[in-house]
Simulated assay, not measured.
Amino acid sequence: MFRFEKIYFTFTVSLFLIEVIIAVFIDDVVIRPHIGDTIFVILLYCAVKSFFEVKTIPLVVAVLLVCYMLEVLQYFDIIGIMGLKEYTLAPIILGKSFSWLDIIAYTFGAVMIIWLEKENNYNKDIKGNT
């Protein structure tokens, strides 16, 4: 069902800005590839939750599958196949190469979402009963 959730939208915009900052200003071996991938999963989740009422676990699984699919496409050099190697944004958006560490980073982001949502719902239940 369609609905607008201001808090998730705020998280989406904030996480997007963080991702842009990482992409533009940071070129290292930890933050850009791994923290960026972890944040990306949370960003996609928040973007969907901003506009649709979806249960946590099915959405986390869907977002995780999308991220895994993007990683598999990197394995098959989708940017090269599509002839997009000379464009600056294509590798930033789609990624350059497959990495098992990226899969782990995506999975960690999904686990963080589940944990944060569980904590958030737990705190709502406590406050609601007081």
Rank of each mutant, 00 (worst) to 15 (best):
T88W: 02
I42H: 10
I42N: 11
R32T: 05
V41M: 08
V60D: 08
I35F: 14
V30W: 15
L101E: 12
I104S: 05
A90E: 02
W115T: 14
E86D: 13
G95H: 01
V29K: 12
E86K: 11
M69S: 15
L73E: 05
D37H: 08
I31H: 10
I79L: 10
N121R: 15
L70T: 09
G109A: 07
D77R: 13
Y45P: 06
E117A: 06
E117H: 08
I22V: 11
E86I: 09
A110C: 03
V61K: 07
D77S: 12
G36M: 08
G83C: 04
I35Q: 10
I114F: 06
A62F: 15
I78W: 06
P33A: 09
V24N: 04
F25C: 03
V24Q: 09
E71Y: 09
I21C: 10
K118P: 03
M82R: 05
S50L: 13
I113Y: 01
V66M: 10
G83E: 06
I22P: 07
E53F: 14
A47C: 13
I81D: 07
E71L: 08
L73K: 00
V30Q: 11
M82K: 06
L44G: 04
M112G: 00
V24D: 03
Y75A: 12
M69T: 13
W100E: 06
Y87R: 03
K96W: 01
L73D: 05
N123D: 12
I26N: 09
V29S: 13
V54N: 11
D102H: 03
W115H: 09
A90W: 00
Y106L: 02
V61R: 02
A110V: 00
I21R: 02
L43S: 10
M82N: 04
K124E: 15
K85I: 03
T88C: 01
L101H: 13
K85M: 06
E53Q: 14
I81P: 05
K49C: 14
V61M: 08
A105Y: 10
V66H: 03
D37C: 10
M69P: 01
I114W: 01
I114S: 04
K85V: 07
P91M: 01
P33D: 09
D37L: 06
Y45A: 05
L94M: 09
D28I: 04
F98K: 00
E71P: 10
I79N: 13
E19P: 00
E117M: 11
K55C: 11
